[in-house]
Amino acid sequence: MPGTPLPDSTMVISAKPVVLSAPGRGEDLQLRVSAPATGGDLPVVVFSHGFGWSMNGYAPLADFWAAQGFLVLQPTHLDSRTLGLPADDPRTPRIWRFRIEDLKRVLDGLDVLEASVPGLAGRVDRDRVAVAGHSWGAQTASTLLGARVLDSDGVPGEDMSDPRVKAGVLLAMAGLGDDLTPFAVEHLPFMRPSFDTMTTPALIVAGDRDDSALSTRGPDWFTDPYTHSPGHKSLLTLFGAEHSLGGIPGYEVAETTDESPARVALLQHLTTAYLRGALHPGDTSWKAAVIALEEDPDPLGKIESK
């Protein structure tokens, strides 16, 4: 049955780079594709990395999700350090838009991706699609859920939501643009989201020690996507977590300031349970996970829902 928990020892196959043609982008789109070695009806998770990362990052989440029965697709965005675009590249001001287009291109290219990876053909469930992302990647993913970017006059920009996407997981996502520092206002004008139309169900994850240099507020800034969005949303607040949420970009990577394998393990299991519940009506994994966290005598976080 799709969504049924698999053994932790499930073999994962991973292929990279899988390439999608991307006219007008200046670079073809490269992805890492990961899936369990066996099984069918695989739900799809398209993951958008944080600033500077690539398809090579976030193995703690991508490999875990794949081992639990998901097809995980990780595009490398133009801001990746692996591509080395100079700051004066003419594409730089629009990288935030290219990122969104990358995710849509991945969904448009599922036929190509399925045919490009040996053993994947006929195993993908195209009716169960989620997007996920960390930091800038979370903002990128949120637009497919219905979030929009405000212009300088506060008018919402283009609706870039995608009806193929049924759920999202937004990790350490920036909050409202009213609280940006002067540097962020000047250099990151796209960081002015509106969550008023972000109606697709989503799990928002925030660390209660995530103090951003881009915001004049404290860690509660990262709860804005939950507070200001309508519809079915859940908020997971991780205790003691900073921006890497314990180390989700990778184990022992330099930018992780709050290394915590236990926190990462909790996030692995809770995000998997959420995705199962959101993509498979009737699945009780998420409800069971919430109850288990509430009954934990020494919890690493808390969950609220609306």
Score class of each variant (00 low, 15 high):
D125A: 09
D125I: 12
D125T: 11
R126P: 07
R126W: 09
R126N: 08
R126E: 08
D127T: 15
D127F: 08
D127Y: 10
D127M: 12
V129C: 11
V129K: 06
A130Q: 05
A130R: 01
V131Y: 02
A132R: 01
A132L: 11
G133F: 10
G133D: 07
H134Y: 11
H134E: 12
H134A: 11
S135P: 13
S135F: 12
W136K: 13
W136M: 13
G137S: 14
A138R: 02
A138G: 08
A138Y: 03
A138L: 14
Q139R: 13
Q139M: 14
Q139V: 13
Q139I: 14
Q139T: 14
T140P: 04
A141E: 07
A141K: 05
A141N: 07
S142G: 08
S142T: 09
L144S: 00
L144V: 04
L145E: 00
G146A: 02
G146W: 02
A147I: 03
A147V: 05
A147C: 07
A147D: 04
A147Y: 01
R148A: 05
R148S: 06
R148F: 04
V149W: 05
V149H: 09
V149L: 07
V149C: 07
L150T: 12
L150K: 12
D151Y: 00
D151P: 00
S152W: 13
S152P: 10
D153Y: 08
D153K: 11
G154N: 08
G154V: 09
V155A: 04
V155F: 00
P156N: 10
G157I: 08
G157V: 10
E158G: 06
E158S: 07
E158W: 05
D159R: 09
D159G: 08
D159L: 11
D159M: 10
